[in-house]
Write a protein that binds this DNA or RNA. Structure first.
Lengths: 153, 153
DNA sequence: ACGTATTTGTACGTATGTATC
DNA sequence: AGATACATACGTACAAATACG
């Protein structure tokens, strides 16, 4: 439940993992306020810099929002939804583990397709399938040719 | 073309705006490498801290990717697409101006719907409509009730 | 109504590690 | 091998908004 300064994973990512896990497990419930930055600093013996970057990661995943007074667990996931035909398509930011598993660059959302079988009731989270990781890593930012041409441009 | 230390907007956001604008204007073309951090530091007389946060913003918008050797403008926008019926739906992160205009929290992607009229050719960027800003600000993170209940929990 | 304490935001500095050129 | 450039991580300081007594 803590971070390890000698682990091969950066402190701020470790803390981000910890906070994310706490949210997923329900140890931090929607609407609940996260401990203030100084709290994380003391508890893990790390700098404010690391704490703030950890929180920024989780915020970027749409799991929390930060206000002047503190960060709060979001009620519903930060998902954008459109209804189409018999189902709906939603977009959200992947968590860091998802992003690594799907080999996505930062700033790339994932799409989730949910089909309403035919009218049957179904659990919101089930019947769901992550479809996309758009451009994936790198084909987008022109690997190779343009990279070297850069000096010319 | 520079940042103003006395403006009411933070230095790092000003720089992020600048970089984003350069990309949108095509002054920075896909595949091109951005100037190194020290370059931005010297040119604008700001700290590395501010430069790095500016770059992090633009990266979070899916406009660039950062590697060991530097940041590069993405070829295509970091968009995830699914095809549905006669059209397609894509998701991407909003730019900071868009996010503010739509009043979205951080970590919330937008969905774009493109319809293929009936078979006619159409410009990729046109015929496009931003549909969504999911949960918008706050209803998600339980404004009001839960906020005060937090002390109890 | 007011001042104080808390908390996050911005911005600077330094140092070290590591991968790339 | 050395220079360059990004990543991580520490430190400080002050500003601004919010909450509290």
């Amino acid at each position: 439940m803590s971070v390890d300064p000698v682990a091969d994973r950066p402190l701020y990512k470790q803390l981000a993992d910890l906070i994310r896990t706490q949210i997923e497990r329900g140890e931090l419930v929607p609407g609940q306020r996260l401990p203030p930055e100084p709290g994380y600093m003391r508890r893990h013996g790390i700098s404010r810099d690391s704490v703030r970057r950890a929180i920024a990661i989780v915020r970027g995943e749409g799991l929390i929002v930060t206000e002047r007074r503190g960060s709060y667990v979001r009620g519903r996931r930060a998902v954008t939804v459109v209804h189409v035909g018999q189902g709906r398509i939603s977009a959200r930011m992947p968590t860091d583990p998802e992003r690594r598993a799907m080999r996505l660059d930062e700033g790339v959302p994932v799409l989730v397709i949910s089909r309403h079988g035919g009218g049957e009731e179904l659990h919101p989270a089930d019947r769901t399938e992550i479809v996309a990781g758009g451009p994936g890593p790198s084909p987008a930012h022109a690997r190779g040719p343009l990279r070297r041409r850069q000096a010319t441009a």
